[in-house]
Design a protein around this nucleic acid. Sequence first.
DNA 1: CGCGGCTTTGATCCTTGTCAACTACAGTGG
DNA 2: CCACTGTAGTTGACAAGGATCAAAGCCGCG
Lengths: 233, 233
Amino acid sequence: MPEDMERLSHVVSDPFVVSAREDLIHHGANPEFVHLVLRGMACRYKILPDGGRAIVALMLPGDICDLNIAILGHMDHSIGTLTDCEIVRIPRSTIEDLLDNYPRIRRALFWATLVDEAILRQWLVNMGRRRADHQMAHLFCELHMRLQAVGQLHDSFMPLTQEELGDILGISSVHAQRVVSSLRHSGLINVQASRVSVMDFDALSTFAGFEEDYLHLGDTGPARSPPGAADAT
Amino acid sequence: MPEDMERLSHVVSDPFVVSAREDLIHHGANPEFVHLVLRGMACRYKILPDGGRAIVALMLPGDICDLNIAILGHMDHSIGTLTDCEIVRIPRSTIEDLLDNYPRIRRALFWATLVDEAILRQWLVNMGRRRADHQMAHLFCELHMRLQAVGQLHDSFMPLTQEELGDILGISSVHAQRVVSSLRHSGLINVQASRVSVMDFDALSTFAGFEEDYLHLGDTGPARSPPGAADAT
DNA sequence: CGCGGCTTTGATCCTTGTCAACTACAGTGG
DNA sequence: CCACTGTAGTTGACAAGGATCAAAGCCGCG
């Protein structure tokens, strides 16, 4: 553990700030760096043939953005910031070194990848067969738990416009607005200046049919908080 | 490479046959084995609160089913066969050994996991924002390419009932039937006894807006075919 | 022959998309 | 201080894709 921490503290250095709505990496690219989010919210997205944007994942502090490029040849999607973010770049060679020579870190990275996959599966289920209101409630529950898990749950947390919400849930921004206001009128959430706060987590969770097991937060996996998050501050 | 092959040939032993529509592993389980598909088609699925089934991934020959349990604590979904399958069980400890001591195999497993994730992202995009006919055409294109990649593309390949198709695409079986017949009448596919064959891949691919890059088949990654597939026969 | 599973077809309803107008608000320059 | 602009949120009317319900056709199998 000590040498792992030592190694990680070298990795997480020279953070820099990226403002909201900037791209970190584009579809098709094959860059020499992997990105780690220290603060703020970023997303993976794909641009559709009709010009629309589909957001397929949200990255919170502690999340590694694109291990893909360290293993796969090229990016099959883009990554951009949603809010102002603090980011660390990790050279591809460093990732290789971590994977090859630090078994516990490797395990942590594998764990993180599998959790990402589990979240994708849950999104897929929500997307395909649930009404937009249940789906949105579920998203808020998930973000609530994930932010809590990395100690970033501030009282109002969702820096998302309704257009961004629509791009996440696969609905139009008009419908996103209707759903937001319906959830607000039900007293489940509160909205102020594009920031959503959960009013009654239990009720929201029941409404959403939220089952947290897919987040694997209680697993025996690696350290409770993802690599990097703790060391950063 | 030689010692990798040697090791793998030990891993892929004692295959057994499982008939169609059997479960290999249940949601919540934490078994001592990982499953590798040698022949047939299996799927990951989740059961919805209303009793419905959402299929979130298809596993073809050469695919490892549930690396999850070797790293994460428990299964957040179930795995079942769709057709008769030939399966190999790999003990958890063997997976640990492969990950720890065989860098190339480890890389291959990581690669496979990331490709699975890429496929999930694509499914998420298709699910959320495309009409059912485009979505279904896209699925057929993907299966066509994946089966081709592992040398299992026979002239008629889709052993799926319309209910299963609906569970994959997130539509009702009634609507699945309407879409199937529309694709058939357009001359894009042919159907005989629950088996779909692609009539005109280029036309289907254009119709579906299919972009194969997310499958990462041409990457510099590990061996062309996933681990185990080649050794099996 | 009859049964059960899958497919096909029709009718109706619901969720959501699309179009369009209007409001609220922050920032900018005169 | 105020008009001007751009962005985000709000609301209504209508259309479309797909769900649901129901019934009938098909077919393999005991």
